[in-house]
């Protein structure tokens, strides 16, 4: 680890590229695009992801930089988390007042099961659905699914697909929809602030950016609420997946497949499936 880290800070090519991206994107600044009744905020961070991806296809970036960049995302996210923390302290009385909402909205993360699972089944996906839709599929979820179903199982393929999707597209997508949804729905910015805590640092950052930019008067409260919700998701996320989300996904999957098939067949249990594989 120390060896790796040493190479990490010495990767001047990478840091210079990031500095150049930051300079360029901050100079371009924020732009607004209206789509129907809604507003999409194009923030420097959004251009930054896209330029970053594009750089991969130039000789400036090679495998070494992408590996280092991955670890640097983790270390730079800690600064964001620290910023979350120091905004939350002064807002303590407000956070206590909003405590019930903060805790209960964690259950909102189950929303993926109610929206994405039926869609996946309509599209004809099979047990991949379970891996894909039980959560937003970050590292901890890959571990959970591998542990329960095996990495090479359909469920394992599902969670990996979601992981790759989230890694590449998650931040861009969250950056686009959070501003849009907060401008087209009558819901309060603070509710969306709490919703940004979905269990991924870079997606939270991308979802929070447009809210802060669109509601500058409330930015301190928005950051505090988002930070508290992020912390709650970080601590409770995996347990939520183990004890509620995954069992619920299994139940819903069985129910929907039963409805879809004309002759509903019982879903084979884990042992039975293992037997099929062996037979």
């Amino acid at each position: 680890m120390a060896q790796q880290l040493q190479r990490l800070w010495k990767d001047w090519r990478l840091h210079t590229l990031v500095l150049a991206i930051v300079l360029l994107t901050e100079m371009i600044g924020t732009h607004e695009v209206s789509i129907g009744p809604g507003l999409i905020l194009l923030l420097p961070m959004l251009y930054a992801v896209i330029i970053g991806i594009a750089l991969f296809f130039t000789p400036l970036v090679n495998e070494k930089q992408t590996k280092h960049a991955e670890q640097l995302v983790f270390l730079s996210v800690t600064l964001l988390i620290a910023k979350f923390g120091v905004q939350a302290g002064p807002a303590l009385p407000k956070l206590i007042a909003a405590g019930p909402a903060l805790l209960l909205q964690e259950f909102g993360n189950l929303g993926t099961i109610f929206l994405a699972l039926p869609v996946a089944i309509l599209l004809g996906l099979k047990r991949e659905t379970i891996g894909m839709t039980h959560s937003i599929g970050r590292e901890a979820n890959i571990a959970l699914i591998s542990d329960k179903y095996g990495f090479a199982s359909p469920e394992g393929r599902g969670v990996m697909a979601m992981y790759i999707f989230g890694t590449v597209f998650g931040a861009i997508f969250m950056g686009l929809i959070s501003g849009f949804l907060s401008s087209v729905t009558p819901m309060h910015p603070l509710s969306f602030a709490m919703a940004t805590g979905i269990g991924s640092g870079s997606m939270a950052a991308a979802g929070l950016g447009p809210l802060v930019a669109a509601f500058p008067d409330m930015s301190e409260e928005i950051i505090a609420f988002s930070g508290a919700s992020n912390l709650a998701s970080t601590v409770t996320g995996l347990y939520m997946s183990i004890f509620i989300a995954l069992p619920l996904t299994e139940k819903m999957y069985g129910w929907f497949r039963g409805k879809k098939d004309k002759n509903p067949t019982k879903i084979p249990s884990r042992n039975q499936r293992r037997c099929y594989k062996l037979c």
């Binding site: 590229l17 994107t25 992801v49 970053g52 991806i53 930089q65 995302v73 964001l80 950052a205 929070l208």
Partner: peptide
């Protein structure tokens, strides 16, 4: 803070 995070993220996404 978020702009450099996502710049690093973008470069790592390329992989």
């Amino acid at each position: 803070i978020t702009t450099p995070i996502l710049a690093y993220a973008g470069i790592s996404i390329g992989g």
